[in-house]
Simulated assay, not measured.
Amino acid sequence: MFSREGTVPPLKHCLRGRRLVLVDIENVVGGAVLHENAARWARTQICKVLNIGAADHVVIGISHIGLLPVGSTWTNPRYLVGSGPDGADRALLAVLDEDVENRFDEIVLVSGDGIFTDKIAAIAALGVRITVVAHPGGLARRLRMAAHQTIYLSDYYNDGTLCGAA
Results as ranks from 00 to 15, higher is better:
101 E>N: 09
83 S>R: 08
55 A>Q: 12
64 H>K: 13
124 A>V: 03
1 M>L: 11
103 R>W: 08
50 L>H: 01
85 P>R: 15
67 L>T: 04
99 D>S: 14
158 N>H: 13
36 E>Q: 14
161 T>Y: 06
54 A>P: 05
145 M>Q: 13
14 C>L: 02
82 G>Y: 06
7 T>D: 13
146 A>Y: 13
114 G>H: 08
90 R>Q: 09
13 H>A: 11
89 D>V: 00
27 N>V: 11
60 I>T: 07
115 I>T: 03
107 I>S: 03
73 T>S: 15
99 D>C: 08
9 P>F: 06
85 P>M: 15
120 I>L: 01
59 V>R: 09
29 V>F: 10
159 D>G: 03
84 G>V: 12
143 L>V: 07
63 S>D: 12
59 V>L: 03
98 E>P: 00
97 D>S: 10
24 D>N: 10
62 I>S: 01
128 V>P: 02
117 T>I: 02
71 G>Y: 06
145 M>F: 14
3 S>V: 08
136 P>V: 13
48 K>T: 06
141 R>P: 02
84 G>F: 14
65 I>E: 11
26 E>R: 13
149 Q>G: 01
24 D>W: 07
58 V>I: 13
104 F>G: 00
141 R>W: 14
74 W>Q: 00
33 V>L: 06
77 P>W: 14
141 R>F: 13
82 G>K: 00
6 G>K: 08
81 V>C: 08
90 R>P: 00
53 G>W: 01
